[in-house]
């Protein structure tokens, strides 16, 4: 995996995971702002940026294991994790699978919840689904490439078009329908949910749902921001909330440790 480290080498480790079709570059401006306080690990997820393709058609659980292995290899016993979009659902998997390894979570426009679509939209989706099967079958019988050449151009999502045919498209199809509800429910660690109010890819009802599912979570909705609230000077705004969240929790922890020490001393 291609990774880079940014910021304070003695800071608390923070692993940052980018979204679908992105690379570690998308989170780099934010990482640079956080780097004054944290030891940031930016990762090109397998199949993205400069990282090689995963060896199989991975789901988010397998991605989470790869990140966990990376953390182990770096000697990180416990760390904070930030995930955007696709990276958010990986972070959720990781936090539910390896509870002890995760200290705190930051989720920005995290994927993993089913879309609430209208009846007409549902009808359209199933139409496209059956049509795709039909076209694929036609291709097979007539040995042509209608699916690749015409169908995808007309009906494929932006992510699908951007994914290279084969493994990455298989992974997209696999992960896009994954549901992280059960994993999210298991998370007890402090979690910050940062969401653009105008996010159309993961609309804010998903943020509210995650807020319900994750007990110890704080939700901040960012007005006039989209699925990439950390773009442009938005990186300053996101860094402000993230650092507040991380430091407030640090102070609380410090206080708890002191209180416990005091308690122990009196006992």
């Amino acid at each position: 995996m291609n990774t880079i480290k940014i910021g304070k080498s003695d800071g608390y480790p923070l692993i940052m995971l980018h979204g679908w079709g992105q690379s570690l570059q998308s989170l780099k401006p934010l990482a640079e702002l956080l780097g004054n306080y944290c030891q940031v690990h930016l990762i090109d997820l397998p199949g993205f940026g400069q990282s090689p393709l995963p060896e199989a058609d991975w789901n988010t659980l397998q991605y989470a294991e790869a990140i966990f292995d990376y953390a182990q290899s770096q000697g990180l016993k416990q760390f904070d994790i930030l995930g955007h979009s696709f990276g958010g659902s990986i972070a959720i998997r990781l936090a539910s699978q390896h509870e002890k390894a995760i200290n705190r979570l930051v989720l920005i426009g995290a994927r993993g919840l089913p879309r609430q679509s209208k009846f007409t939209q549902k009808l359209y989706f199933s139409f496209v689904k059956y049509l795709s099967k039909l076209v694929k079958l036609t291709d097979k019988i007539l040995n042509c490439q209608i699916y690749e050449k015409y169908f995808i151009a007309k009906f494929g999502s932006r992510d699908y078009k951007n994914a290279s045919p084969g493994r990455m498209r298989n992974i997209l199809v696999k992960t896009v329908t994954e549901n992280t509800i059960a994993s999210a429910q298991k998370i007890l660690k402090p979690t910050l949910l940062l969401w653009g109010e105008d996010d159309t890819e993961t609309p804010i009802y998903m943020a509210q749902k995650y807020h319900e599912l994750i007990k110890n979570s704080k939700l901040i909705i960012l007005p006039a921001k989209d699925h990439f609230p950390f773009n442009d000077v938005g990186s300053h705004l996101c860094a402000h909330y993230i650092l507040n969240f991380l430091s407030a929790d640090n102070q609380k922890k410090q206080f708890q440790i002191q209180a416990e020490a005091k308690h122990n001393a009196t006992v």
């Binding site: 901040i220 007005p223 006039a224 442009d232 000077v233 938005g234 300053h236 705004l237 402000h240 909330y241």
Partner: peptide, 10 residues
């Protein structure tokens, strides 16, 4: 516009 994008909206 830059300022508006960076102001603490909480």
């Amino acid at each position: 516009l830059q300022l508006i994008k960076a102001i603490d909206t909480e």
